[in-house]
Simulated assay, not measured.
Amino acid sequence: MEIIHISYPLSKTESGEGNKQLSMAIGHFDGVHRGHQDVIARAVTAGKERGLTPAVLTFSPHPKEVLGHGQHYFSCLTPPRVKMEQFAKLGVEIVYIMKFDREFAALPPKSFVDCVLEPLGARHAVVGFDFTFGSKGAGKAETLMELCSPSITVNIVEPFHLENQKVSSTRVREALGQGDLEVVNMLLGRPYEVCGVVVHGDKRGRTIGFPTANLELDGSYVQPRLGVYAITARVDGEQYGGVLNFGMKPTFNAGEIKPVMEAHLFDFSREIYDQSMSIQFRHFIRAERKFSSAAELIAQIALDRDTAEAWLDQHLQ
Rank of each mutant, 00 (worst) to 15 (best):
G121E: 10
V39R: 01
G128R: 06
G139A: 12
K110A: 15
R34W: 00
E103D: 14
V126M: 08
V113C: 09
P119Y: 08
C76H: 03
P80F: 00
M84D: 06
F100K: 04
F59K: 03
L77W: 01
V116M: 12
F133S: 08
L57A: 04
C76A: 11
V56F: 02
R102M: 13
I97E: 07
V92N: 01
D38Q: 14
I94M: 07
E93F: 06
A122T: 10
A138E: 12
V127L: 06
F133I: 09
L107T: 13
E65A: 11
P54T: 11
R102N: 13
T58R: 04
P119K: 10
H72K: 10
L52I: 12
A138V: 00
R102F: 08
P109I: 03
G35R: 04
F100W: 00
A43V: 13
K136L: 09
K83A: 01
I94F: 00
E65R: 09
E118T: 15
K99C: 05
L77H: 06
D130H: 08
R123H: 12
K136N: 11
D130T: 11
R102E: 11
G139D: 04
G134Y: 06
P109E: 01
P79F: 01
H62R: 09
A55R: 02
F129Q: 05
V82G: 00
K48R: 15
Y73D: 04
T58I: 09
G137V: 07
F59W: 04
Y73E: 04
R102G: 04
C76Y: 03
F59C: 05
A41G: 00
E85V: 05
S111V: 10
P54A: 09
K89R: 14
L52M: 12
K89Q: 13
A55F: 03
G134A: 12
E85D: 11
D38C: 14
P109Y: 05
P119S: 09
I97H: 00
C115Q: 15
G35K: 02
E103K: 15
D101Y: 04
P80G: 02
S111A: 15
H36Q: 09
A106Y: 08
L52G: 01
H62G: 08
I97R: 03
K64T: 06
P80H: 00
G121M: 13
V44P: 04
P80L: 10
G35L: 06
D114I: 03
R123P: 08
P80V: 11
D130E: 13
P119D: 07
G68V: 12
A46L: 14
Y73K: 05
I94P: 02
E65V: 15
S60K: 07
F100A: 04
H124A: 12
G128A: 10
G47N: 12
G51I: 13
S60M: 12
S111C: 07
V126I: 15
K64Y: 06
P54W: 05
A46R: 13
V66D: 04
R81G: 08
F133Y: 10
M98Q: 10
L117F: 01
A125K: 02
E85W: 01
